[in-house]
């Protein structure tokens, strides 16, 4: 069959909402784009463990500590589902991890911000996981089978993440003046970076058109961002916090919230590596990998010893 015929079959499947599976023929660019997107999503989960892991030893109660541990553990699991999906596209785990450590691969820029107070953990759960959920629910309908299935599994686990974050802030918002101030301060620092999670405006987004054509992306950046603002603005009322945007206002004609312009300079700066914690995050990941080498070696040797013992017993 010619490439043209194969392409036609592929596009036909896309149109009919038939999922593309690992061994199906696909355009090289489709494969490359998915490897990039899925692996970067995986890196984001794993790097995302760091800002929250920072507060595990300092969570205010045993219950909060156990909950935060469970959440961070979930993020590790999510990273693993996604690394697993990336591998189905023909790239090794080693190569994928290497790309993160060498700085070649990106991860979500939101994780380049520091967690300064306990309230940050609440803000991350409410805003950052909230944004992630919108994106991930949309991706449950992505055209590549393994990615879509990983998203379904992740979405089931993600909703507890957002709820525990909101609950943290709710508790603070009903507390002392110091607690209320801490809550407002965290929201002030995490609001705009959360909006940036949805990426540049549709008009500036280079990969979007191709991704939409191939149904990798099912909703645009701006559409998702608007959905997020509408949802969060309502939830903020319950917390009695103000979102740090003087232009945020309900527009009855559009039936949506109007909101201010993102500081795109900050956005591109952080993406290009000049955020507050970029270096810290990568250093932490590299250190973890290097210091874990003895574990990987020990496990391999242990497995061989176990196998040798078993063959001896049988013989």
């Amino acid at each position: 069959m010619s490439i043209k015929d194969l392409e036609k079959i592929f596009l036909d499947k896309i149109e009919k909402e038939i999922k593309i599976e690992p061994k199906d023929w696909m355009p090289e660019q489709y494969r490359k784009t998915l490897i990039r997107q899925i692996s970067q999503h995986a890196h984001s989960e794993v790097v995302g463990m760091l800002p929250e892991g920072n507060w595990i030893t300092r969570a205010p109660t045993l219950k909060r500590k156990a909950i935060l541990l469970a959440k961070v553990q979930d993020e590790a699991g999510h990273g693993l589902y996604l690394y697993s999906a990336t591998e189905t596209l023909g790239v090794s785990r080693e190569q994928t991890i290497n790309d993160l450590h060498s700085g070649k691969a990106k991860y979500s820029s939101i994780f380049n911000y520091p967690t300064l107070t306990w309230a940050d953990i609440g803000a991350i759960g409410w805003l950052v996981d909230g944004a992630a959920i919108l994106n991930q629910v949309m991706l449950c309908r992505t055209s590549y089978g393994p990615y879509a299935r990983a998203m379904v599994r992740i979405c089931k686990e993600e909703s507890f993440h957002q709820r525990q974050g909101f609950e943290i802030l709710l508790t603070l918002s009903r507390g002392t003046d110091v607690q209320k101030a801490m809550c407002q301060d965290a929201v002030n620092r995490w609001w705009w970076p959360s909006l940036m999670m949805f990426g540049p405006h549709d008009s500036e987004s280079t990969h979007s058109e191709q991704s939409t054509q191939w149904k990798i992306k099912r909703m645009s950046n701006d559409e998702l961002r608007q959905k997020f603002v509408d949802m969060i603005a309502e939830q903020a009322k319950i917390l009695n916090v103000t979102l740090p945007d003087p232009e945020l206002k309900w527009n009855p004609e559009r039936n949506h919230y109007d909101f201010g312009e993102i500081n795109w300079e900050e956005f591109w700066n952080v993406v290009k590596g000049n955020g507050p914690c970029n270096k810290q995050r990568l250093d932490a990941r590299r250190k973890a990998w290097q210091e874990g080498e003895w574990v990987r070696q020990a496990a391999a040797v242990h497995a061989e010893k176990r196998k040798a013992r078993e063959t001896q017993q049988v013989a």
């Binding site: 991890i97 290497n98 060498s102 990106k106 993406v271 970029n278």
Partner: peptide
């Protein structure tokens, strides 16, 4: 050389270190 941000596809940072122990 380590990069910390968005770099183009054809460049690659400190790739060598992971290989020997793999």
């Amino acid at each position: 050389k380590y990069y910390y941000g968005d770099i183009p596809e054809d460049k690659s940072g400190g790739a060598a270190d992971a290989r020997q122990t793999a």
